[in-house]
Design a protein around this nucleic acid. Structure first.
Lengths: 219, 219
DNA sequence: GTCTATAAGAAGATAGAC
DNA sequence: GTCTATCTTCTTATAGAC
């Protein structure tokens, strides 16, 4: 990786940990292994480093959105798949989403930085909302909508169903960002959440059957 | 309000808007209507102002937790009430919780400040989690648990049911904190969420009846 | 492109009069 | 308790040699 890119990378790490104002140009330079003045050969000033990070973020988000659109379009064509989706596959979907957001290094640092800096600049708040709230909801609404069309799930309001699927995942994510030692607890709750979600929204006949089975077990 | 308290109040407002590092002692002084050096007669330094805010926050949170315990205990005694709770009352419960968190001035500023500063100090992250995640979940688990005991709601896992009730509220709250212009949209979704929650978790016989009714309507 | 030396300025904090 | 004047320190950024 060239110096110009390494500066962005180290700066993102530091900004995500301490916030823009608490990171000094000398800190970034030290991490890169150069002295502060050398850094000005690559970027005009500290703000330009921050702007470059945001620009790169926007570029990556656009790419990702493009991929999702493609997947979404594909998914519409392959609707057959969603007729036979199982509870286990739904759990896998939720787990993958959760662990990607939590562990992908780039995503994680961006999210933390946006969390810290969102009140300084309205655009950052909007970017945060788009990336971690609105886009995931839109994407999942497509998937869950297909499962409704396929007769796997049942609801009169797919938008709220999607909120019921994603809001607990989002909440568990905000817990793990702040208290990483609670990840194990979060994963257990995540699975319990999705199993219960599936019971609640599975086709009615199946709910009743499930309830009868589980009641029989208890007695 | 005396000067010492006004300093805390104005400082909290500024910290919640810009973050600690971006607020200068002179800014706080100006809001209070004095010059920066005068401020040092009331607090040893800038950090002492921040610490006093956190101390006050902890005091208020403890008070509030005490009140909740009392209400929780009362609720256990008056379990009769929860046998007859209606969907409209559940909506009122959710709405009150949401609007209190969103509009109570003190709560709102604290939450924003903790959001910005949580990665600087682990204790702040923990305080945020306790106040806006763990404590609301505990309290609501008591209430919803009572409704299950009373036979109004039905579930095999009250903890996850509570997550299903609160996580969407929490998510809508984080939206409104960052994009206040979306409050109206959030309130509509909040109501739709609680109605659907009630349909999903209401006693089984009622779900089935509701579904029949709504299907009849559609045709 | 990297360095050392240094300028320029910002922000926290103190001294001492009133 | 509040003010003006000032000190001190820290941080960004530039100049200019290599």
């Amino acid at each position: 990786m060239d110096t110009k890119q390494r500066i962005l990378d180290e700066a993102l790490t530091l900004f995500s940990e301490k916030g823009y104002a608490n990171v000094f140009v000398a800190d970034i330079a030290e991490k890169v292994g150069i002295k502060a003045p050398s850094l000005y050969k690559h970027y005009k000033n500290k703000q330009a480093i921050f702007d470059a990070i945001i620009e790169e973020m926007n570029r990556r988000f656009l790419e990702e959105a493009g991929n999702l659109q493609i997947n979404g379009a594909d998914a519409t064509e392959d609707a057959e798949i969603y007729k036979h989706i199982s509870e286990e596959q739904l759990i896998t979907l939720g787990n993958n989403l959760f662990l990607y957001f939590l562990h992908d290094d780039y995503t994680r640092r961006f999210r933390k930085m946006l969390t810290i800096e969102q009140f300084h600049d309205k655009k950052l708040a909007t970017a945060y909302m788009k990336q971690y709230v609105d886009d995931p909801l839109s994407y999942q609404e497509i998937l869950l909508g297909l499962m409704v069309s396929a007769g796997v799930l049942q609801t009169e309001n797919v938008e709220i169903m999607t909120l019921h699927f994603y809001a607990p995942i989002y909440m568990l994510l905000t817990i793990c960002d702040r208290e990483p030692e609670r990840e194990k607890e979060a994963l257990i709750k995540l699975e319990a959440h999705i199993r219960q979600f599936n019971r609640l929204y599975a086709r009615n006949e199946e709910i009743i059957q499930d309830n009868k089975i589980s009641r029989r077990k208890k007695k």
